[in-house]
């Protein structure tokens, strides 16, 4: 497990312990990675974050077009592995969780403990530091720093 900010560790550890999830990716709605567990290559994290944020954005638009509230979660159940993609509100805005799980767990267990996880995250979120606008020249540096933190290299 790798986290960008320490306060995410506790809730994420408990979620992993209870849910037996194989992979977890926690990101902002713009696709910026906050924490990951189980990924071994940074390129996989970047791709999954971009795809996850994109899927949530497009299903949100779809819901808007259909005149319904945005979807809370999407679940894909495969024969070997299932996926949960779920958005949730935090004091720092809307975040997205991507969870992959195998037959040792279940959709029900993952959803149950993901709800507990999001409650804990909302309660534990410290006030955000004031940040200046993200400039293009800073963006890559921030991204690389994030990836180093997430992969320890």
């Amino acid at each position: 497990m790798r986290v960008l900010e320490g306060w995410v560790s506790g809730p994420l550890s408990r979620f992993l312990d209870e849910s037996a999830a194989r992979l977890v990716l926690l990101m902002t709605s713009s696709g910026q990675v906050v924490a990951q567990h189980g990924f071994t290559r940074s390129v996989d994290v970047m791709s999954a974050a971009a795809l996850g944020a994109g899927i949530m954005a497009s299903t949100g638009e779809l819901a808007h077009l259909m005149g319904s509230p945005r979807f809370g979660a999407l679940v894909h159940q495969g024969t070997e592995q299932g996926l949960l993609l779920s958005g949730f509100d935090t004091p720092r805005g809307r975040w997205i969780g991507l969870v992959a799980f195998g037959p040792e767990s279940s959709v029900g267990i993952v959803q149950l403990f993901f709800q507990q996880f999001t409650d804990e995250i909302a309660a534990a979120t410290p006030p955000e530091e004031q940040r200046g606008p993200v400039l293009a020249e800073n963006f890559e540096h921030e991204l690389n720093a994030s990836l180093r933190a997430l992969f320890g290299r």
Binding site: S105, S106, G108, I109, Q111, L112
Partner: peptide, 13 residues
Amino acid sequence: GRAIAALAASLAG
């Protein structure tokens, strides 16, 4: 109810 379903199924498995 969701908790009952998830936990009962997990225990049963």
